[in-house]
Simulated assay, not measured.
Amino acid sequence: MPDEYQMLREKVALEYGFALYRNYMPKQAAEILKIDLSTIKRWTGKKRILSKQFGADGVRYMGIELADVIIKGTRPWDDTPSDNSSSDNTSSDSAKAPLPGIAAGAREAGPSASLSARRILRKPSSD
């Protein structure tokens, strides 16, 4: 099986025009994956794509990692442990845990940014 997967990686690299064992800068990696630079940075922060530190503040992506993203996507993979996985609950009916953040249509507690801005920018009242 690993040999078949490696051949698939090589075919993807050939089709997309990149080398598997070369480091790519974020802009180059984004161009290869046909995504925006901000998206690859976000994926890196969320550990959806593996990267390597390069120098003090640089990041590089191996071509083999880019091939894996093209093949598998950025969702948790079967061979990657997940916090949501449970060996005792394998029912397809079970609901998946919601992602962290604000639910669709829900409002965040506290004043809105526009309300805060209006308070700050309001002319002082003359007493």
Results as ranks from 00 to 15, higher is better:
residue 2 P to D: 08
residue 2 P to C: 02
residue 2 P to L: 07
residue 3 D to L: 11
residue 4 E to H: 07
residue 5 Y to F: 15
residue 5 Y to H: 14
residue 5 Y to R: 15
residue 6 Q to W: 08
residue 6 Q to N: 14
residue 6 Q to A: 14
residue 6 Q to P: 01
residue 8 L to G: 01
residue 9 R to S: 10
residue 12 V to H: 01
residue 13 A to Q: 13
residue 13 A to L: 11
residue 14 L to A: 13
residue 14 L to K: 13
residue 14 L to H: 08
residue 14 L to S: 12
residue 16 Y to Q: 15
residue 16 Y to A: 15
residue 16 Y to K: 15
residue 17 G to S: 14
residue 18 F to W: 06
residue 19 A to C: 05
residue 19 A to L: 08
residue 20 L to Q: 10
residue 20 L to C: 09
residue 21 Y to S: 14
residue 21 Y to M: 15
residue 22 R to P: 07
residue 22 R to V: 13
residue 22 R to H: 15
residue 23 N to D: 13
residue 25 M to W: 08
residue 26 P to R: 04
residue 27 K to C: 09
residue 27 K to P: 05
residue 27 K to I: 14
residue 28 Q to V: 09
residue 29 A to E: 04
residue 29 A to G: 03
residue 30 A to C: 10
residue 30 A to Y: 08
residue 31 E to I: 02
residue 31 E to A: 12
residue 31 E to H: 03
residue 33 L to R: 06
residue 33 L to H: 05
residue 34 K to A: 12
residue 35 I to V: 15
residue 35 I to K: 11
residue 35 I to H: 03
residue 35 I to C: 09
residue 36 D to A: 07
residue 36 D to Q: 12
residue 39 T to E: 04
residue 41 K to P: 01
residue 41 K to D: 11
residue 42 R to G: 03
residue 43 W to F: 05
residue 44 T to L: 03
residue 44 T to F: 03
residue 44 T to A: 10
residue 45 G to T: 03
residue 45 G to V: 01
residue 46 K to Y: 01
residue 46 K to H: 02
residue 47 K to T: 06
residue 47 K to L: 09
residue 48 R to F: 07
residue 49 I to A: 00
residue 50 L to G: 06
residue 53 Q to W: 00
residue 54 F to M: 08
residue 55 G to Y: 03
residue 55 G to E: 01
residue 57 D to V: 12
residue 60 R to T: 11
residue 61 Y to I: 06
residue 61 Y to W: 08
residue 63 G to R: 07
residue 64 I to V: 15
residue 65 E to T: 14
residue 68 D to I: 05
residue 69 V to H: 06
residue 69 V to N: 06
residue 69 V to D: 03
residue 71 I to A: 04
residue 72 K to D: 11
residue 72 K to W: 03
residue 72 K to M: 04
residue 73 G to I: 04
residue 73 G to P: 05
residue 74 T to A: 00
residue 75 R to A: 12
residue 75 R to Y: 05
residue 77 W to P: 00
residue 80 T to M: 07
residue 81 P to R: 12
residue 82 S to D: 06
residue 82 S to T: 05
residue 83 D to K: 13
residue 84 N to Y: 11
residue 84 N to Q: 12
residue 84 N to S: 14
residue 85 S to R: 06
residue 85 S to D: 12
residue 85 S to P: 00
residue 86 S to A: 14
residue 87 S to N: 06
residue 88 D to V: 14
residue 89 N to W: 02
residue 89 N to D: 09
residue 93 D to C: 05
residue 95 A to N: 09
residue 96 K to E: 14
residue 98 P to S: 05
residue 98 P to W: 01
residue 99 L to M: 00
residue 101 G to H: 01
residue 101 G to Q: 01
residue 101 G to S: 03
residue 101 G to M: 03
residue 101 G to E: 02
residue 103 A to Y: 04
residue 106 A to V: 02
residue 108 E to S: 02
residue 109 A to D: 13
residue 110 G to A: 02
residue 110 G to H: 01
residue 111 P to S: 06
residue 112 S to P: 00
residue 113 A to M: 08
residue 115 L to N: 04
residue 115 L to C: 06
residue 117 A to I: 07
residue 117 A to P: 00
residue 120 I to Y: 10
residue 120 I to M: 07
residue 121 L to V: 07
residue 123 K to D: 13
residue 124 P to G: 11
residue 124 P to L: 10
residue 126 S to P: 03
